[in-house]
Every structure is written in C-alpha cells, then in structure tokens.
Amino acid sequence: MSGRANKKFFYFGIAVALMIAILAPFLASPDPDGLESAAAGVVDESKLSDLEESGPVISSPMPDYSIEGMGKSGEVAAIAAGTLAVLAISFGFGKVFKKKA
C-alpha cells in the first residue's frame, strides 16, 4: 500500500500547497494578525512605534511574503518559493535523519 499511496499524498499535498500559495495574496485578509492587533490595543502608542521602528535583526530577501516592485505576482512567487523551499528542506531532512532500516 504505502509506497505508491504516499507518493500520491506527496503530489496531492504539493498541488494543494501551491494552490494556496497562488490564492493567498488575493484571498488572505490584510488585517493585522492576533498578536499585532493585540499590541495595537494594549501597548501605548509611543512604545508601539518604537517597537515597530526597530525592525528585524537581519534583513530578509522577501519581507512580508513580497518581492519589491512586483505586486501581487511577487507575493504569489514569494509564497510559492517558500512552499517549495520548505518542501525541499523537510524532504532532505527526512532523508538524512529518517529511521535507519
């Protein structure tokens, strides 16, 4: 059963993940998430702007799942690239660290 069926699950999973990657920039809510929204509500304004001004400690190639100057298509590309990166990293990790037969 499992060898072929697992491959089917693998390809089906990739298809679903990439479909979400394509749809997310159009469907996802632009509202702040629970943590950001809570911060805006309970942290006083001057402190919050300090927190927001000191950005991440390292700069990322695609901050906020976007590629500069590419709009929605850049967001699709960024999320798809991340999805495939996670796929490759977890697959590679699994192959290296799997249970030894």
């Binding site: 697992n6 491959k7 699950f9 693998f10 089906f12 999973g13 990739i14 993940a17 999805t83 495939l84 996670v86 796929l87 490759a88 990293i89 977890s90 697959f91 699994g94």
Partner: peptide, 8 residues
C-alpha cells in the same frame, strides 16, 4: 514524503 507535503 508525507512529512514534506504536510510541512509545505
């Protein structure tokens, strides 16, 4: 493959 597909 299951682990990788779920992670993606």
């Amino acid at each position: 493959p299951i682990l990788a597909a779920l992670a993606a």
